[in-house]
């Protein structure tokens, strides 16, 4: 078994370890008359991706904290606007925004703006199907976050509470999920907590 690809940062440079590209032979494609038409091109790769200035958000959800950002530029006409999804810069004045903890706001005010129960997924999906997509609005936040519901059936206007994959986090957006307000701890998916 090949060693799984992993990356460390040493002196501000990536140091890679394990197998990043897996070589598999090409296979010919023939038509029904046994004439050559094409070839398969297998490719297994691992990308290296920087979260950059959004890293505090993804680190936050792995620890049970929901972070957004707020524009505090007194000269900006959108001053005071709070954004979730977390944005690094204000979309109007382009000043770096202040990181704010929205965990309590979410616990107290989050409700479903719209939703979709999706029976299908694409390759590489890690969520259980059907996927219950929800978009969540919060008091005082000017945007509407996309996420997924892990218990119950979604409805527009339903109050929901955030849950976090704090045990063995993946450090992806899937570490943040939601359940209807009042859901007992025992009903949370494995690895998640309030």
């Amino acid at each position: 078994m090949a060693k799984e690809a992993s990356v460390k940062i040493v002196r501000e440079r990536y140091k890679v370890n394990g197998e990043f590209s897996v070589i598999t032979p090409n296979r010919p494609i023939f038509n029904e008359a046994k004439k050559l038409c094409g070839i398969t091109n297998p490719r297994t790769m691992t990308y290296i991706h920087s979260y950059g200035g959004e890293a505090p958000f993804f680190e936050g959800i792995s620890k049970g904290i929901l972070r957004g950002t707020r524009c505090d530029n007194p000269k900006c006409e959108s001053k005071g606007s709070i954004y979730l999804p977390f944005r690094i810069f204000c979309p109007d004045c382009l000043k770096k925004m202040k990181i704010v903890d929205l965990t309590k706001t979410a616990q107290k005010t989050a409700k479903i703006h719209t939703f979709m129960v999706c029976e299908r997924s694409g390759a590489f999906n890690t969520l259980d199907k059907p996927i219950k997509f929800i978009n969540i609005e919060f008091d005082g936040v000017c945007t509407i976050l996309m996420s997924y519901l892990s218990a119950g059936e979604p409805e527009i206007g339903m109050r929901v509470a955030p849950i976090f994959r704090t045990k063995n986090p993946t450090y992806t957006i899937t570490d943040l999920s939601w359940v209807p307000v009042g859901t007992p701890k025992s009903k949370l998916p494995k690895g998640f907590s309030f």
Binding site: H49, Y51, E54, F58, P85, T114, F115, M116, C118, R120, S121, G122, A123, F124, N125, T126, L127, I131, F133, I134, N135, M146, S147, Y148, T172, I173, T174
Partner: peptide, 16 residues
Amino acid sequence: DWETPLGHIYTGYYAV
């Protein structure tokens, strides 16, 4: 970062 890991299915992002 914010959408693709959620199911890898564009239809879902549109369908909401």
